[in-house]
């Protein structure tokens, strides 16, 4: 089977590799699709719904990060309709937890905030929920502030797939879902945490942060984790390559 396939992205015929997702194929062809849960080198979950695209012949939107590109496929990555759905997805994330950007450690370095600006979200049409959520400061070096979590599960995946420590999981269901440490203990009591900090660096928001930083000060270093994650991607026998 040839390894190259042809797909049409926004009308233009481009080449992609067999096995690539629509998201990867678009990126390889310098086309921007937004995405919050996607992280290069980690498995994909399709959690955030920002990367939805239209695929000709399919009458619903598909997350491009989990949909394989197929030979002859025609994909639309930008349209007024997609923008509208992407904005809705973002607004729901803002309404779900407590995002108070002005006093957040990640203010001005946050992927959620940046997408809001990029996609033109200037207010949230849904009623905010104002849930009461925990800030766990028990770890000696790091903090998890559930108020800022968008449940992208990047932290869960990087800890499982790159560090191999399996510290994080998702507890609860639906609107009650939250990131949990081991069997729901305080992070400081985790038995498997190696203190590597990878989860902190991949977290797109201020939910995971290093201690000792004030508002606006937490700048993540994703390049190093991405490097580690992609090295693993080429060596893992269970992976796609």
């Amino acid at each position: 089977m040839p390894n190259r396939i042809s797909i049409r992205i926004d009308g233009e015929l481009v080449q992609a590799e067999r096995g690539q997702t629509i998201f990867e194929a678009a990126q390889a062809n310098n086309r921007f699709i937004p995405g919050l849960c996607q992280f290069k080198g980690l498995s994909t979950v399709g959690a955030c719904r920002l990367c939805v695209v239209e695929v000709q012949g399919v009458n619903r939107l598909l997350p491009s990060c989990t949909t394989p590109a197929q030979d002859g496929m025609a994909v639309i990555t930008r349209s007024a309709k997609l923008n509208d759905y992407r904005r809705q997805a973002l607004e729901l994330l803002f309404a779900e937890k407590n995002h108070v950007c002005a006093v957040c450690v990640s203010n001005n370095h946050c992927e959620l905030q940046a997408y809001a600006q990029r996609l033109g979200v200037t207010n949230v049409r849904y009623a905010y929920r104002y849930p009461r959520l925990k800030v766990d400061m028990s770890h000696p070096r790091f903090v998890i502030d559930h108020n800022r979590c968008v449940l992208c599960t990047r932290c869960v995946r990087v800890c499982n797939e790159v560090e191999g420590a399996y510290v994080w999981g998702v507890a609860g269901r639906g609107i009650g879902s939250r990131i949990a440490c081991e069997m729901d203990r305080d992070w400081g009591k985790a038995s498997a945490c190696t203190n590597c900090g990878k989860c902190v660096q991949v977290c797109p928001t201020g939910a995971l942060a290093e201690k000792g930083f004030a508002a606006e000060e937490m700048v993540k270093r994703q390049d190093l984790v991405e490097r580690l994650a992609t090295i693993r991607g080429t060596m893992n026998p269970g992976g796609s390559r």
């Binding site: 803002f94 407590n98 995002h99 108070v100 950007c101 002005a102 006093v103 200037t122 207010n123 949230v124 905010y128 104002y130 849930p131 009461r132």
Partner: peptide, 11 residues
Amino acid sequence: VTSNVPSMRNS
């Protein structure tokens, strides 16, 4: 626009 810092009392 969002109720921002004043909303931190809401819970």
